[in-house]
Simulated assay, not measured.
Amino acid sequence: MESVTLRQLEIFVYIAQFENMTAASKKLFLTQSAVSMSLKELEKTLGGSVFHRVGRGLILNDRGRALLPKAKNILASVKDLVDMAHNTEKALMGELMIGCSTTIGNYFFPTRLKLFCDEHPQVRITLNVGNTREIAKLVREGILDIGLVEGIVEERDLDEKEWVKDVLVVIASPEHPFACRSMVPMAEMIEEQWVLRERGSGTLSSFEALLASKNLRFPYVQEIGHTEAIKRVVEAGMGMSCLSRLAVEQELREGSLVEIPTDIEISRWFRIISLPEEHRSRLFNYMMKWLFSFASVK
């Protein structure tokens, strides 16, 4: 029986990541024919295909989805072995694929990631930013090693840990009638026009879950899929919104937006998600410990 090679697994992982053979071949500095031949040999050894062919794209089928996390695990183990053999000073080496939901990726994680990369120049971090639903899907498929998300995760088969506490604030234009009030009950607020993030967003799911626990729901909501766009339309007086304080610190400081105090605390946990696998590389374990060194959101 033919054996599967590490090169075949590496090529398979890159094809799964890019969903395209041409993009994978460029990333690996191989010809497209070499990548195609490697995939054919892997599928022959496994006794069946691992991708659906959709137009010019390649989408993982059920066999491929089952194989991907195991393939990444094997490659991580080999990288860890090589790192240990060649590294007498025990400096970290390797690559991690990390996904962040929007608030974390735009307002919280980048400055902290720079500190990590400055301390560990031989580690390569690839960062993917999307909403919570998108990041959870990529983690589940094995494309991302770690997900940093802010919302409710629907995938129950992921390992999920509370990470840091985040505070959400209700914001409005300085000209809004509520701007001059010291406190506005949420039951009164929700009768206003609201501009919120899109379905799949952690900010929206967290806020809606809190309101549902108080038997409240929005009558008037406009959804916009970008935090910066929401801030601009709220500044223009098109409604109220609820966003992480991290995302609006500058606008609150400058006075282009105002916080409207309410009678309930609006907070949620940022969470770390990953596949529940037994083996973890030295780099993965170090990154997890490093992430949990953040005691709170500053």
Rank of each mutant, 00 (worst) to 15 (best):
Asp83Asn: 14
Gln17Cys: 09
Val4Trp: 03
His120Met: 02
Gly47Leu: 10
Leu283His: 05
Ile230Glu: 07
Thr111His: 09
Val149Asp: 05
Gly130Val: 05
Ala71Asn: 00
Ser77Pro: 03
Asp118Leu: 05
Met1Cys: 08
Met93Thr: 15
Arg112Leu: 13
Asp263Val: 06
Ile272Ser: 00
Trp163Tyr: 13
Ser49Met: 04
Met21His: 01
Met240Gly: 03
Ile11Pro: 14
Met1Ser: 14
Asp80Glu: 11
Phe218Leu: 10
Ile264Gly: 01
Leu196Asn: 06
Ile264His: 07
Val82Glu: 13
Gln193Thr: 03
Glu95Pro: 02
Arg245Asp: 11
Phe292Pro: 09
Phe207Arg: 01
Pro110Val: 06
Arg112Pro: 08
Val248Thr: 11
Val234Asp: 13
Ile152Asn: 06
Leu92Trp: 01
Arg65Cys: 03
Lys165Cys: 06
Val13Ile: 07
Val129His: 09
Ser33Phe: 01
Thr111Trp: 05
Leu6Thr: 09
Leu6Ile: 02
Gln8Met: 03
Met1Thr: 14
Thr103Trp: 04
Val221His: 02
Tyr14Asn: 11
His120Glu: 09
Glu228Lys: 11
Ser244Gly: 15
Ser36Pro: 01
Ser205Asn: 03
Ala172Phe: 10
Leu144Thr: 06
Gly255Ala: 05
Asn61Tyr: 04
Leu243Met: 14
Ser33His: 00
Asp118Ser: 09
Ser49Ile: 05
Asp83Pro: 04
Met189His: 02
Gly151Tyr: 03
Leu42Trp: 06
Glu134Gly: 04
Asn131Lys: 03
Gln222Glu: 14
Glu95Asn: 15
Ser201Val: 08
Asn20Leu: 02
Gln32Thr: 08
Asp166Pro: 02
Tyr14Ala: 10
Trp290Tyr: 10
Asn73Asp: 13
Ile104Ala: 05
Glu150Val: 06
Lys137Val: 05
Glu188Leu: 08
Phe292Ile: 08
Ile104Pro: 00
Phe116Ser: 06
Val233Gln: 10
Phe207His: 07
Phe116Gly: 07
Met189Lys: 02
Ala136Arg: 00
Thr262Gln: 04
Ser173Leu: 10
Glu235Thr: 10
Ala236Trp: 08
Phe284Trp: 09
Cys100Phe: 12
Glu192Phe: 01
Gln17Asn: 13
Gly94Ala: 07
Gly48Glu: 11
Arg133Gln: 12
Gly48Cys: 11
Val184Tyr: 03
Leu257Cys: 05
Glu10Leu: 11
Ser296Pro: 06
Asp118Tyr: 09
Arg112Tyr: 13
Leu210Ile: 15
Glu141Pro: 00
Glu43His: 07
Phe270Cys: 12
Met240His: 06
Ser296Gln: 12
